[in-house]
Design a protein around this nucleic acid. Structure first.
Length: 428
RNA sequence: GGAGAGGUGGCUGAGUGGUCGAAAGCAGCGGUUUGCUAAACCGUCGUAGGGUCAAAAGCUCUACCGGGGGUUCAAAUCCCCCCCUCUCCGCCA
């Protein structure tokens, strides 16, 4: 959420910045709502003051054992007026709040203007896509042929966009999880968290998933909890409504969780294979830091995610989001796109974003810069390090050989008892 | 699921209708003193939003004692609903 005081004082600037990401800020509506709220506030406070003064007079009269009936009746009428005004004020405040909660974050000046994926800026390419002397297959062919992926049964047991991994396939995924967490915790200074997989509405609001993206989430019938679409939600909410000691910043966490997404509105997209599914696994990286450090921390976080791809010898490129392709709450963000030979293209495997104070304001996460100083909002960042299912796809597609087997990246072999190749296994 | 206790400022913890935004202590901040990685003493010390002001300071007003509603001239305090924590019983991976 944007700072309402900033909006009041810099409406034109805000409108222009938001236009860079394709959002049309309705300046007139904002000013009208803001003015109405202010008028009601002033009037309500004026009457409250009158009542408080009168109440004190009554208290004094009572102490003097004087008659207070007349005075009491006089104030009684004010009380009703206050009640009406308070109702009106509450409504006005709610309307302003609702207006503000659907405004996306202001883009960082570094984010290129643009509204579509094509306007993203390629920053660098790392690793050379392998030359095949045969036509490389996609994972939806390789996986079932090896007997490590079963999509039909996933669809039977649950529905479309669900799947089973089996034997070496399931183990490959488990190895990837340990591999990713070990690097981030042992070498990159992240603290590992195991988190709740369902959260309440307040948490979903804080990260920006509510109120706008309710349809993208899976909801429990009872109680009113949603399954997390990413560990970003529980980890960012770890410090909701807290004041952190500035000396502890930056704080860095990594968490492995399942992620649940309804994928509403993506019906035609990526219908083959397991690239886009309702349930997947991800190792997430989350940081809390001082505002002046956040863009630098974004570079470091991105490089922490890249490290996994480098060790797995997977070719990838880094793309800087244009203003319009960024997530709702992001000010600046990079995508890591891994090379998928089966599809002959780079595909997203990680998204790393700086949310500036957008989530911190919603979540009320502050820090005290110095002992005794006033609390300020932190900046929050997060990124995938990495999406495990997509890493699985990348390994299978990049490691495939003409005979249908898959070579496992060297760095991962210690997590598989030294196994170097996935060979066809008995069907489940 | 059943029974009970409780949620107060950064923390601990008083306060059961009116000079309570809230005692006291700790922590923090400012200072004094002491020849020592500290102690003692003094002072200060919540957040948000209005008004005044060119602005800041200051002054002043309003709200906030888990959340929401109610009673009352007046609510941290009384009533109702919800949430959370703790204890005991039951069930259970």
């Amino acid at each position: 959420m944007l700072d309402l005081n900033y909006l009041r004082d810099n409406l034109d600037e805000a409108r222009e910045l938001l236009a860079r990401r394709g959002f049309n800020l309705d300046v007139d509506t904002f000013q009208t709502l803001d003015r109405e709220r202010k008028q009601l506030l002033v009037e309500t406070e004026r009457l409250r003051q009158a009542r408080n003064t009168a109440s004190e007079e009554i208290a004094q009269l009572v102490r003097e054992k004087a008659d207070v009936t007349a005075k009491r009746n006089e104030v009684k009428a004010v009380g009703q007026k206050i009640k009406d005004l308070e109702d009106a004020l509450r409504t006005a405040e709610a309307r302003l709040f609702d207006f503000a909660t659907v405004i996306p974050n202001l883009p960082d000046p570094a984010a290129p203007a643009g509204v579509t994926e094509e306007q993203n800026l390629e920053v660098r390419r790392v690793g050379e896509p392998r030359k095949f002397d045969f036509t490389p297959k996609a994972h939806w062919d390789i996986g079932p042929q090896l007997g490590i992926l079963d999509m039909e049964r996933g669809a039977k047991v649950t529905g479309a966009r669900f799947y089973f991994l089996a034997g070496q396939g399931a183990r490959l995924e488990r190895a990837l999880v340990s591999f990713m967490l070990d690097i981030q915790t042992r070498e990159r200074g992240y603290t590992e968290l195991a988190t709740p997989y369902m959260v309440n509405r307040a948490s979903m609001f804080s990260t920006g998933n509510l109120p706008k993206f309710e349809a993208d989430l899976f909801w429990l019938k009872e109680p009113d909890y949603a399954l997390i679409p990413t560990a970003e939600v529980p980890v960012t909410n770890l410090y909701r409504d807290e004041i952190l000691d500035g000396a502890r910043l930056p704080l860095k966490f990594t968490a492995f969780t399942p992620c649940f997404r309804s994928e509403a509105g993506s019906y035609g997209k990526d219908v083959r294979g397991i690239f886009r599914v309702h349930q997947f696994h991800k190792c997430e990286l989350v940081k809390f830091c001082r505002p002046e450090e956040s863009n630098n921390e974004l570079e470091k976080l991105t490089s922490d995610a890249e490290e996994i791809l480098k060790r797995l010898e997977l070719p990838y490129r880094v793309v800087l989001h244009c203003a319009g392709d960024m997530g709702f709450g992001a000010a600046k963000g990079y995508d890591l796109e891994v090379w998928l030979p089966g599809q002959n293209t780079y595909r997203e495997i990680s998204s790393c974003s700086n949310f500036s104070d957008f989530q911190a304001r919603r979540a009320n996460i502050r820090y005290r810069p110095e002992p005794g100083a006033k609390p300020r909002l932190v900046h929050t960042l997060n990124g995938s390090g990495l999406a495990v299912g997509r890493a699985w796809i990348a390994i299978v597609e990049n490691g495939q050989q003409a005979d249908g087997t898959v070579v496992i990246p060297k760095a991962l072999r210690p997590y598989l008892d030294g196994q170097d190749v996935i060979r066809p296994q008995t069907a489940i």
